[in-house]
Design a binder for these strands. Structure first.
Lengths: 341, 341
DNA sequence: TTGTACGCGTTATCAT
DNA sequence: ATGATAACGCGTACAA
């Protein structure tokens, strides 16, 4: 593959002149520029980013580490990050940990090896040990979707506590009294927030949180499936379910379908985040949607600002409001930006 | 950020010794190794991949360029590629063109700038001009899902012609005579294959392909939606639809739902590739699934073989068989690896 | 077993 | 406006 010296030789100039042409420097005669450009075209020369980055100490690359790439919530976040990064001439490396701390460690090392300029991460656990590497090497970092206590970094997350509260408010207004929570791992702040919102709404309506109606597992379909099977065995049986995320809701639908329970006639179901593609068929699910794309945008914005200004001032925190979408079986759709209460 | 010389200095050795320790060379005393490792830990030293690649002319990175990252088909392909690459100690860069040739050009340049070792690509069009850059610079390339006539490269694709044939066979056996094809852009080989299979099956059953029952647009939900609305206006109306991919099927479901047409009572619907998440609710769609994961695996395997053997022998072609999944509204599922006829 | 010298491709700095 | 030189961080070739 041709290098800058090959081009320089063919154009009869010094390598630095080629560099100037590539980078659009002013101080080059139109004539030399033409000759250099001709040589570039002739040789199909493409500059080597590796060498460039080695010199400049900048890769123009950021990383996004998510916990589940199969979840449309995260792919939407990724789009927000990538679009914002691209607008600022940054490339994005997308990594998927599958909620596995070991994978997270591997990726963090890999990314530092590649000298990414910064990292946006949804940490697999609230343990800050793994993130320490970034701090030690002064790699700027933005936490997304999940807080990590004691780790100083910019932070972007959705207010899912409020989202959960709205959903439970909605169910209670519809007359439900026994509402089960099918949650993710409460070691993760977002799951904790949703449990908090669930409890707060119940209490605000003079109801008590019953321990045997609160289930926790993973943010996965299989977990939702298993937990809802358990929930259905409760006596008395709950009349409504809050799924803590979209995949849990899918598992719930699966379990309910197997048990011959119709939604919402036999069992009400609401969840945080929209359930992919489902509304095409039967748009009945009331959900509190987190602004995934905006979360990605916001995180990338914070990171890139830090990268370009190089100022190490106070960390910033962005909390984005959810959107309640109330859907009924009749097919009507009612979108609601404000609180439903 | 510390470099190899900082570590060497702290350990009281030469940089090359540190290099040897990092790369697990035998010829290092246990004592020096310990001292070096201590220095590495002390400084939180992480080797610089950029410099390493600059020296070795190898980035251990391949690229996968897909046409629609929102489609589960492609994310599954990506998993196959990434897993296989990772097993062979290669990293994968994932790029999404959204079927836009301009984006494709940009990505190809970007990837060459980064000196990826090889590229797996689903070309946005059958024009081989954009791919020429790879050839000129001797960057190994594997085509996936789509053929490009006159472009010599390894090739992996699913036999969707057979898939389409099976699906139409199935519909005809159920008694359907007027079957519409809702296709993608026939400039793409996979769409062409599906049209061929459609026609072949009709002819094999003594039916003729009616031009006004063949619709073509994009491999997107919106396109499927619009085309099915047109198809419903046909007189006499078709009794069955073949959607050329899963997103087109989603658009079809949307259009049918709006028109008050139930599937399959009022209109039969089959498609190539499975429709994401839908079977959780109502597993009624008969589909011909392409082995997406295996396609990714296979493509990565071909590419990495070429990278490691450095031999420029003949190009290879891998055609993978689809799997017919016949589902009925009653909830029964019948999986069928062989031909349904 | 360990070290020295040099080169990978590019750009910053300082000259001309 | 253009060029010479050195440096980024690492690994190969060869020497000690």
């Amino acid at each position: 593959m041709p290098n800058i010296r090959d081009v320089a030789q063919l154009a009869g100039v010094a390598p630095i002149t080629v560099s100037r042409v590539i980078n659009g420097a002013e101080s080059v005669t139109d004539d030399t520029r033409r000759r250099v450009q001709y040589a570039i075209d002739q040789l199909h020369y493409v500059p080597n980013t590796l060498a460039r980055s080695l010199r400049s100490h900048q890769t123009n690359t950021i990383a996004l580490i998510v916990s589940d790439i199969t979840n449309p919530f995260w792919t939407t976040v990724a789009r927000g990050v990538e679009d914002t990064a691209a607008e600022n001439d940054f490339r994005t490396i997308l990594c998927n940990t599958d909620e596995d701390p070991a994978k997270e460690t591997i990726y963090l090392n890999l990314l530092v090896e590649r000298r990414v300029d910064g990292v946006i991460i949804a940490p697999a656990t609230r343990d800050k040990k793994r993130l320490a590497l970034l701090k030690q090497l002064h790699v700027p970092c933005v936490l997304i979707d999940r807080r990590v206590e004691g780790f100083k970094a910019d932070l972007v997350y959705g207010d899912s506590r409020t989202g959960a509260r709205w959903l439970i408010d909605h169910l209670i207004e519809l007359g439900h009294q026994r509402i089960a929570l099918i949650n993710g791992p409460t070691t993760i702040s977002s799951a904790q927030d949703r449990a908090d919102g669930y409890r707060e709404s119940l209490e605000a309506h003079g109801l008590v949180m019953e321990a045997n109606l609160v289930f926790q597992g993973a943010f996965k379909q299989e977990s939702g499936y298993q937990l809802v099977k358990q929930a259905l065995a409760c006596a008395p049986r709950p009349t409504a379910l809050l799924a803590a995320n979209n995949f849990i809701a899918l598992g719930a639908l699966q379990a309910l379908s197997e048990a011959g329970q119709r939604v919402p006639e036999d069992m009400a179901l609401v969840c945080i985040d929209d359930v992919p593609y489902l509304s095409v068929i039967d748009p009945f699910l009331t959900v509190a949607v987190q602004p995934a794309y905006e979360m990605g945008e916001s995180a990338a914005q914070l990171l890139i600002e830090r990268l370009t200004t190089h100022c190490d001032d106070e960390t910033r925190e962005v909390v984005l409001a959810p959107q309640l979408i109330i859907r009924r079986s009749c097919g009507q759709c009612q979108h609601n930006a404000g609180q439903s209460a």
